[in-house]
């Protein structure tokens, strides 16, 4: 019987080649320096992205490029890995997204078409039937999320309660899935994602003026920093949160975000710092010679790259200055 490392030998080989095709600092700089969106798209096409034809509406083109790359990434995982469940880390998010869309459409009587994502694995009819009460065809994790969201909405009939309940179930599912695959590096990444999400909830809720109970409800368990530790400092000055995350590696991030919150500066900085922290963890997979880590690292690196691509393309489309784009990407390594 093959060990975990050997099972991923083929995937590691493929990923080592694909890693060299990830956008490097030089290409990112060329995209930023391109005179317009078309120039940036040319740089992307050189890097192996689908060649896009610009139409009058450029936003859908950008969405199509990133969605197409996600599909290619999912196909790569299916081809190379002995654990096709790894695809869940890309597609499950869209399934949960579609569940939220259909539930909001039903409970708030709004049309779902514009928000519906075609990248999920569970089809619209199944989710629709499940919302009507026939849940037998719905995967278990989605059925659990559906009943949690319905219960939360019954208690407090606000649209965000659906999102909060489904997000909680999604992270619970991803954590359980990572643990069931037995890949510690993946568990660490998902836990880090949960921690960064909780920190984001902490700062954003405070900026919104929401109370402690709301923040505690919106936070997700399962990370390395307990939500209880975070909300303990909720009513204290923002810098108090730094003590709550002491020894976790998020101190610098928490300190800077707390300063931004206290000074009334935009919290977008928090996202930039979170991406930087995440990237530092993702890149460690490059030093693992064999095993699931290179593939998992590549999946997260590619998703990270797609975020950067979207950011640069939308900034180019709207004529944002090069300096502003560089400022937004400061500390976000590639």
């Amino acid at each position: 019987m093959l060990g975990l490392e050997s099972k991923y030998a083929y995937a590691t080989g493929r990923v080592r080649v694909l890693e060299t095709r990830l956008l490097d600092r030089g290409r990112i700089d060329r995209m930023i320096d391109a005179p317009d969106l078309e120039g940036a798209l040319k740089v992307l096409a050189e890097a192996g992205y689908a060649r896009a034809q610009l139409s009058e509406k450029a936003h859908p083109v950008i969405d199509d490029i990133t969605a197409g790359e996600e599909e290619r990434l999912a196909a790569l995982i299916r081809e190379t890995t002995p654990e096709p469940q790894l695809v869940d880390f890309i597609t499950a998010r869209w399934d949960f997204h579609n569940l939220k869309v259909m539930l909001k459409a039903k409970l708030h009587r709004v049309p779902p078409e514009k928000a519906w994502a075609r990248h999920g694995t569970c089809d619209v009819a199944t989710i629709k039937r499940a919302i009507e009460g026939e849940t037998k065809d719905l995967p278990r994790h989605l059925a659990e999320a559906l009943s949690a969201a319905k219960a939360a909405h019954d208690l407090h009939a606000m649209p965000e309660t659906i999102d909060i309940a489904v997000d909680r179930e999604m992270y619970r599912y991803l954590l359980a899935r990572a643990k069931s695959l037995g890949i510690q590096y993946l568990v660490d990444l998902v836990q880090m994602e949960v921690d960064l999400f909780n920190l984001s909830v902490y700062f954003r809720s405070r900026r919104m003026g929401r109370d402690r109970g709301f923040a505690a409800e919106a936070m997700v368990p399962g990370g390395k920093v307990s939500p209880m530790r975070l909300v303990a400092s909720y009513e204290q000055p923002p810098e108090a949160v730094v003590a709550s995350v002491a020894g976790t590696g998020y101190e610098a991030l928490a300190r800077q975000a707390a300063a931004a919150l206290a000074e009334g500066r935009p919290l977008a900085e928090l996202e930039r710092l979170s991406e930087a922290v995440m990237w530092d963890r993702i890149r460690k997979a490059r030093y693992v010679p064999l095993g699931p880590e290179p593939l998992v690292g590549y999946i997260f690196a590619k998703l990270h790259e797609l975020k950067l691509v979207r950011l640069i393309l939308v900034a180019k489309l709207s004529g944002m200055s090069r300096e502003s784009i560089r400022e937004r990407l400061r500390d976000v390594h590639v």
Binding site: P266, L267, A268, L270
Partner: peptide, 10 residues
């Protein structure tokens, strides 16, 4: 009217 996952602080 939205949750925190997938949305931006901006």
């Amino acid at each position: 009217p939205y949750g925190f996952c997938g949305t931006s602080a901006s």
